[in-house]
Design a protein around this nucleic acid. Structure first.
Length: 835
RNA sequence: GCCCGGGUGGCGGAAUUGGUAGACGCAAGGGACUUAAAAUCCCUCGGGAAUUUCUCCCGUGCCGGUUCGAGUCCGGCCCCGGGCACCA
């Protein structure tokens, strides 16, 4: 441990009285002060300018980790900055408290999920408080609180009534270890996002939120937030939504094929983004799970050999097919080309996805890489219908670039980019196809077959079908008396919970036992914070509060939520708007995605044994040290490599500013300084201080490059410690304590209270005179190479500077012909000579 | 394969957006203080040459270009990280 042996002992170094910095004492004192004074509650005065600063809320896993420290330190610094310069600031915290880990803990430790969760919250709340975070106390909640669930259930019912939610049976992603269904967004490389177990496809009934209805708006509204969000997050969302425009048309089966299929099918639809290549179709391909294939198998319409191949391909999981070679088999049926009338063979192909488009494609081997590969393998014909404007086609691969149509009937000779629309139009005129927009985005499956979640507020009545619970009966709460086994849903097996009466007919009915995906809770929590909801219990949040506070001005969180949470929250905001609860289109105007905290080059994790516990760091050095290190070690968007000695460096800096503070005189206003009476060094120190002040505005409001702001502060302190002028020194502290308060609030409060009575904790005007330089240093280069440095008066004109510059580099330009003289005011002098 | 980031000392990272590369911090070395150590303070710190203290050469992944001047702009390439990935 460093320097803690002499707490509160005063002694003299170089004649100045100093005392040792004791972070534990100072920090707890200020934390108590803030707590007792409710220092961080937002004002109800809606005439004040506002800032809503939000860091993503944590899952109450038990203890905070360094990622939390980083996230909350960034958010807290921004919040404290705005509060200090006079904004009404909403800076809330809550707990994303439903979810699997509580159930896992229940199984492992025989503790009820609710007890485990709320105990964790109590512990973590203390940890966050010890970090000196300026959260509002009145706005705190946990998403598992019944009051929160109540409103969520109301939203869900309203969504159901407005066609935004439906129950249906479809193929779903099933994780056996988590014993639940997962949304598409929660499946990563075919594995569960939480436990990494390989997912299975099952056919199950479940609840779906129709996020696809908002695909277009989610895409278009990116325009509204593009200045505040990182480009890559928007790109990721754009790719995820995956809009593509093309032609949808129907392939009619040939007459023989129709009768072969017992007239159950007359054809099937296909979608293409390349209608310009439609004349090049030489075969069509169906997904292994296509209904026609199902039918043919059920009715033994394949010969033995084909059936065997079909069954083999179908037996392979779609995700495993990705890695495999293209494979297929001719199904023995044909369709008719809609424009040429030619017969087109129908194949089954392992690369066709049943869930995209219609699960069937037209194949144009000449102009599609996949189709080419497949056609080459099975010796299918290749028909070239586009050729480059200049040069020859290389017929050993698909030609996918732009060009002119050939062999394309009436469209021959047209540029392919134009042919796209022309051919769509032709299909529409003939009534055999139409323009179609396809999205990759699927509806959001929110059913989870788990206990620790918000119950879906619906009842299954044998007479009335699905019936929403009555609003006055909300919330539908979880029973406490359950046994968590990790197997079947405890709500399903509970002896009495699910048996209820139908809200409509009053007859015996059964409750829905699925609970909601936890991402539903985190999709609207930003709205809940806007009101002092303990006072206003008849609404989820007050409209006037929502209008005032929303949208969130600055949102801070990890990049890992780029798609999942951030897309859902954007959707939910739009849905709440359309249901009449919200007034905004987008929830977060600005987003800062903070980088991970690494140790020894990889993410801190228990399994790697490289975890640094924030509590230990705080116990050893204090919260300000932890905060300072977090913001100094790297820019917020980058990864941050943990460094024990870097932390010690931060601690040393705090000690220095604490001890040197005694060189200040006590005052409650900024010292008036006559710049004319100062030495060069004193002016220099003042300039650095004011440059830091100037920089701080940009840092807290725009760039968030706290690392360089801190560096600039350190530089200022170094300069101040070289001078002896008490006024300049005091002014420097007055300002620097102000600049650093958002980052290291405890020590700056302590010093500012003692010396300035906190008079420095408000916006300080920049003294432009202090920023002015009397002299400027010019590097003088000859042919671009720096040869000398000169110092001239700020007022010096070009001629004067050039004359001095030539003198300084005389030995380089003697006897040489000067071709050019470059003079960039306040920057550089360059003399170009011959030879 | 496609789309984004990014490659700067021993390390984390700066560089006013085309104008003194390496701010600030860490680590390292030397010195002061001390019986000693810790802490603290001072000095050095990209590489090389010279060392008579006035210096010179090289250097921001690699090759080339534009420019009086390039870490920054342009063309080509090589690595690293992330995202998407048979999406028709």
């Amino acid at each position: 441990m460093i320097g803690n042996n002499f707490f509160n002992v005063k002694w003299k170094i170089k004649g100045v009285l100093m005392k040792t910095y004791n972070p534990q004492e100072v920090e707890i004192k200020w934390q108590k002060h803030w707590d007792e004074n409710n220092s961080f509650e937002p004002s109800e005065d809606k005439t004040l300018p506002k800032k809503y600063i939000l860091s993503m809320f944590p899952y109450p896993s038990g203890r905070i980790h360094m990622g939390h420290v980083r996230n909350y330190t960034i958010g807290d610094s921004i919040a404290r900055y705005y509060r200090k310069i006079g904004f009404n600031v909403l800076h809330p915290i809550g707990w994303d408290s439903f979810g699997m880990p509580a159930e896992n803990a229940a199984i492992k430790n025989k503790i009820h999920p609710k007890k485990w969760t709320y105990e964790n919250i109590d512990y973590m709340r203390k940890e966050l408080k010890r970090l000196g975070l300026s959260f509002s106390k009145t706005r705190e909640f946990a998403t598992s609180d019944p009051e929160y669930t109540r409103w969520e259930q109301e939203f869900i019912i309203k969504m159901y009534e407005n066609g935004l939610l439906e129950r249906r049976t479809q193929k779903v992603n099933w994780c056996e270890t988590c014993h639940t269904v997962l949304a598409n967004e929660q499946v990563i490389d075919g594995c569960c996002w939480r436990c990494d177990n390989e997912i299975e496809i099952k056919e199950l009934p479940g609840w779906y939120i129709k996020i696809t209805k908002y695909a277009e708006e989610l895409l278009n509204d990116m325009e509204k937030i593009k200045d505040g969000w990182p480009e890559r997050v928007l790109t990721m969302q754009k790719n995820w939504i995956g809009k593509s425009i093309g032609l949808k048309f129907k392939f009619n089966l040939s007459d023989e094929s129709k009768s072969k299929l017992k007239n159950r099918f007359d054809g099937y639809e296909v979608f293409t983004t390349r209608p310009d290549t439609v004349y090049g179709v030489t075969y069509s391909a169906l997904a292994p799970e296509h209904p026609i294939v199902d039918f043919m198998l059920e009715n033994n319409l394949f010969n033995l050999e084909t059936e065997e191949k079909v069954r083999r391909i179908r037996s392979i999981l779609p995700k495993d097919r990705q890695a495999m070679e293209k494979e297929g088999v001719y199904l023995g049926i044909d369709v008719v080309h809609p424009l040429t009338g030619e017969k087109v063979p129908v194949w089954l192909a392992n690369f066709v996805l049943v869930e995209y488009g219609s699960g069937a494609v037209m194949a144009v081997p000449a102009h599609d890489e996949r189709d080419f590969e497949f056609a080459t393998k099975y010796n299918l014909p290749i028909k070239w219908v586009i050729e480059p404007e200049n040069g020859e086609i290389n017929k050993t691969e698909a030609y996918t670039a732009e060009g002119i149509l050939i062999n394309s009937g009436e469209f021959t000779g047209i540029k392919n980019t134009k042919a796209k629309d022309a051919i769509i139009k032709k299909f529409e005129e003939l009534g055999i196809g139409s323009k179609e927009i396809n999205y990759r985005l699927r509806d959001w499956g929110i059913s989870r077959q788990r206990y620790w979640g918000a119950p879906l507020p619906f009842v299954k009545c044998p007479k009335c079908g699905i019936v929403p619970e009555k609003i006055e009966n909300l919330p539908v709460t979880l029973p406490d008396d359950v046994e968590i086994t990790g197997g079947a849903n405890p709500l399903e097996t509970h002896p009495t919970w699910k048996y209820t009466k139908c809200p409509k007919c009053g007859g015996d009915a059964i409750r829905e036992t699925d609970t909601m995906d936890t991402f539903v809770q985190s999709s609207w929590y930003q709205f809940r914070y806007v009101s002092d909801f303990r006072k206003y219990k008849d609404v989820p949040f007050r409209a006037e509060d929502e209008k005032y506070w929303m949208p969130v001005d600055q949102y801070i969180g990890g990049i890992e939520h780029a798609i999942l949470h951030l897309l859902y929250a954007r959707f939910f905001t739009k849905a709440l708007r359309d249901l009449g609860y919200a007034s905004v289109d987008e929830p977060f105007s600005k987003l800062l995605t903070q980088g991970m905290v690494l140790k020894d080059g990889s993410k801190m994790s228990k399994s790697k044994g490289n975890v640094v516990d924030p509590d230990e760091i705080i116990a050893k050095y204090g919260a300000d040290t932890a905060r300072l290190f977090m913001l100094f070690a790297a820019p917020p968007e980058q990864e941050l490599e943990w460094s024990d000695s870097g932390v010690e460096g931060a601690y040393r800096f705090l000690n220095r500013i604490y001890q040197n503070a005694s060189k200040c005189k006590k005052t409650n206003k900024i010292p008036q300084i006559d710049a004319n009476k100062l030495t060069k060094e004193e002016k220099e120190a003042r300039r650095k201080v004011y440059e830091t002040l100037k920089r701080s505005k940009d840092t807290y409001e725009k760039t968030f490059s706290f690392n360089t702001l801190i560096a600039s502060s350190m530089e200022s302190f170094n300069a101040l410690n070289k001078i002896k002028n008490e006024d300049v020194y005091t002014e420097g502290y007055f300002i620097l304590m102000n600049v650093l308060e958002p980052i290291i609030p405890h020590i700056t409060s302590e010093i500012s209270k003692e010396y300035f009575d906190l008079a420095n904790f408000k916006e300080i005007q920049i003294d432009e005179n202090a920023l002015k330089k009397d002299e400027i240093n010019y590097p003088v280069s000859v042919n671009g190479k720096k040869r000398a440095e000169i110092s001239v008066s700020t007022e010096a004109k070009k001629d004067e500077v050039m004359a001095k510059a030539k003198e300084a580099v005389a030995k380089y330009i003697e006897d040489k012909e000067i071709i050019k003289e470059i003079f960039v005011p306040k920057r550089i002098v360059n003399i170009v000579i011959k030879g």
